Amino acid sequence: MKKILLLLLFFNFLFAQINSPEFYERQIKILRDLDIESNFISNLVFVQSQQDIKSKHTKTLIDGMQNFSKITPMIRKIISEEEVPEEILYLAMVESGLKVNSVSNAKAVGIWQFMKPTAKNLGLRVDAYVDERRDPVKSTYAAIDYLKRMKAEFGKWYLAILAYNCGNGKLHQAIKEAGSDDLNVLLDSDKKYLSLETRNFLRKILTLSFLANDRDFLLAKDASLVNYALSNDFIKVDAPSSVSLKDIAKNLNISFATFKKYNPHFKHNFTPPGKGYYMYIPLNKVAFFDKYFKENKLAKVDTTIPMTKVYTVKAGDSLYKIAKNHHVSIDSIKELNRIYKNRLSINQKIIIPIKENKNANIKTAQSDSKNYSNFIRH
């Protein structure tokens, strides 16, 4: 015990020597924001793990700041409006690196990594036409709603974050076994009340939060990062039903790739049938949209959803060969499977569209009634 106390004092001293008083205060504020006692900053395992986490996940942080400048401002704005800790942004970074098309081995999707049943329970639409887990705005509201529910259930933000990773049932069990909800107790490496994945989940979020608040670190990486994520540059408008996304992009005078980047929730190259759906457009196109965009001039397209089959890639296969053998286009296979390169792996399972004449009987969900006031125009 004496040896452990001496080690804790040593690491605490070392930590204070390395970091400036201002940065130390910012770290303490982060802990307070998440209802964590300030003494956790000296937690031996946390201090020891930080260097490893930094080496493995610094790139995630920098990429999130540099490559997702259209997403981070939006998340920060919603977090501020919803009055939840700003550190929640780094939960998304740990989950997916802020990649809207991220898919886990367990089939969790989007920047917040929702499973399909959870997404639907939170009001996100996931069907043959759209997957709103890929919508960074709607999925962020859903993630915050979920975290608020967990905060109400457990009483502390760090517990809500742990529950986000392991589920509320497992967290209740862990607290019962530990006889405490104190973070130092729950993350005990010997007792293992929680899995290593869940224990490291919170440590990663804290480490990224600390790095993002380390001005010297950001300046050393890229001076522009100090002022990143200041404003969003897109807005939500009504989408015409059953029209080609390429026609919409053309009428907005933007590239199809740009339109898809702003609207990753569309599963196909057309908008869903039925009224009441939406799309995002760049902020600098709002005046053009209001003046020149005419829905009645866009041709309606066939919104038939093709039947599909699962194909296992064999040695010697290529996208060209598979497409030719199944009488479909390469683009249709790439779009359906969200394949962005032409390489395939042996034993990789891909979905092949099979054309048929019969329309899928899909009920169009009503648009979400929540007032996303800063992103919706009426």
Rank of each mutant, 00 (worst) to 15 (best):
M150S: 08
R149C: 00
E153L: 15
L124H: 04
L122N: 01
Y129N: 06
E153C: 01
T118C: 11
Y146Q: 14
K116R: 12
A143M: 12
R125W: 02
A128E: 15
A143F: 08
F154N: 08
A142Y: 01
Y141C: 11
T118L: 12
K148G: 09
N121D: 13
R125D: 13
M150N: 15
E153R: 15
G123Q: 05
K148C: 07
D135T: 12
T118Q: 05
Y141T: 10
L147E: 02
V130Y: 00
Y141Q: 10
G123F: 11
Y146R: 13
T140E: 01
K148Y: 07
R125A: 06
L122D: 00
R134F: 06
V126W: 06
A152G: 12
L147P: 06
L124F: 08
G155N: 04
A142W: 01
N121I: 00
Y146G: 08
W157Y: 09
K138A: 13
D131R: 08
V137H: 01
K138Q: 12
D145K: 15
A128H: 10
V137F: 04
L147N: 03
A142H: 02
P136K: 03
D135S: 13
A143I: 09
W157H: 08
W157F: 07
T118S: 14
Y129S: 10
F154M: 10
E153K: 15
K156C: 00
L122H: 02
K138F: 02
G155F: 05
K120S: 13
V126G: 05
D145I: 10
Y141V: 13
G123K: 05
V130N: 00
A142G: 04
K156V: 01
R125K: 12
V126T: 13
Y141L: 13
T118R: 05
P117V: 11
M150A: 14
V130S: 02
A119F: 11
P117I: 08
V137I: 15
